[in-house]
Computed example of a mutant assay.
Amino acid sequence: MPKTSLDGIRVAAFTHFAAGPIAAQYLGSLGADVIKVESPAQDVNRYALRDPNGHLQGISPYFVVTNRNQRNVCLNLKTEDGLAAAKALIASSDVLIENYRPGVMEKLGLGYEEIKKINPGIIYASISAYDPEGSARNRPGQDLLIQALSGIASLTGRGDGPPIPVGAYIIDGFTAMQVLVGILAALRHRDATGEGQALRADMMSSSMYLMAQEASYVLNVEANPVRSSAGIAHVNQSAPYGVYQVKDGAIVLSTFGGVPMVKKLVAALQIDDLSEEDITEQKIRFSRDEIATKIAARLAPMTMAEAMSAVEPTGTWTAPVRTLAEALADPAIVETGIIQDVSSPYGGDYKVVVEPLRMEKTPLLSRRPAADLGEHTEEVLAELGLSPVKADAVGHL
């Protein structure tokens, strides 16, 4: 087995749903020994979205793809033995990562102030929906809610229609990456000083950072930018940046060449009612809907192939709007190796998309499929020098 970046690092993962498991899984792919502590009640994601065809034996595709490269210990943290086993695991760990509601770990006696007494060098990473010390700390937090509250949804969609949330759980994934960066930096600091530390990221703050460019415009230029009614895909972009329907689908147009490139595009599409005076830096920005509407009308009767062959020679960037299934079938994506086959007695045979990071000397590994509930409880307890605990302290052995 090749050497990995995090050989010898153990992670105790008190994680559920998406953001916590994604961060923990990435650490596992970097070579850490990640041990997920799951309650007998189970991670909601384990069965929240089942495969309708039974390919995954009734478990959720979401769970199998975000809980790879982790061992699974099932402990009832509300029992004395279960809590003692959790503390023994934490004492042997380099990193603890958790994304429970604020205050839950503290109520269990597993908050950072208690844990650093038994493991001063631990990196204690917390993920929450909102600032755990702020006034919003007890609000319900989930990707869709954060998209709404942060303003992401308000920036998406046509101006004459409702806001549209992004069709992926982008805030869960982006928040997980903030914590991952923090953990790696904290491990480097510990290597140099011996000091552990607590770190945290919350989904709301992460969503604001995700929109740092857009926020800078709102904070400094225009407080309430208006979405385009003609389909310009960004509140701050000029025409023709956006999605355009064609006879057999849709394409996107993106130009960073300013007026000269827009003039080439208009000429190539033979849009006679747009003159030279209609295409200025001011007008492609502030009359963008009018310009985009005329471009859209010219493209609508064309096939995708006809539209792209007309657009590409102008230097305007263009691409077809594909379904996710079409993207996953693209040979250029398949050849990267990012889609991998996984087989396990628990989940059967399935495919997953793995981490995109490539490292020459310490490659990422895909060595463990998502584990069954409590699959490694006996194994891990034995490593900790613990005898099997009482039945009510674990899910099943």
Score class of each variant (00 low, 15 high):
L364I: 04
S229P: 00
A319P: 02
V246I: 11
Q197T: 11
D202C: 06
K283M: 10
K294D: 06
R101H: 06
A391N: 09
M211T: 11
I338K: 01
E378V: 07
L27H: 13
L386C: 08
I127T: 08
I171W: 03
M208S: 06
G182L: 02
G109L: 06
F256Q: 10
P132M: 12
G348D: 03
T323A: 04
I295V: 15
G173M: 13
V104K: 14
P363Q: 05
V95Q: 03
E326A: 15
I118D: 04
A85F: 05
G58S: 13
A310Y: 02
V37F: 07
N224T: 11
E133Y: 07
Y217R: 01
Y217K: 04
N72F: 00
Y241D: 07
G258V: 10
P363K: 04
M211R: 09
A186T: 04
T4R: 14
G28L: 07
R368S: 04
L365I: 15
I152W: 05
G161M: 11
G20C: 10
K283N: 15
T175N: 13
A300W: 01
L384A: 05
A201V: 07
S275I: 02
L386R: 13
R358W: 00
R158F: 01
K107W: 03
P102H: 06
H234R: 08
M208K: 14
G374W: 02
L199K: 01
L269M: 12
I22G: 02
D94Q: 10
A13Q: 09
L144V: 04
A212H: 10
N72I: 02
L386P: 07
D372Y: 00
L49G: 05
R68N: 06
P345V: 09
Y100L: 15
R10E: 13
S238L: 00
I90H: 08
N138H: 12
A148H: 02
T318Q: 09
I339G: 08
V235Q: 13
A230K: 07
S206L: 07
V64M: 05
L265S: 12
A185I: 03
G315I: 10
A329I: 00
I146Q: 13
S5R: 13
G348I: 09
V218T: 13
L77V: 11
A327K: 02
L83V: 08
L180T: 15
D7L: 02
L144E: 08
A192S: 05
A176R: 01
V64H: 07
V354K: 10
V166L: 15
L265C: 12
K264F: 02
P2D: 05
G121L: 07
S206I: 01
A297V: 05
P320G: 06
I59Y: 14
V266R: 09
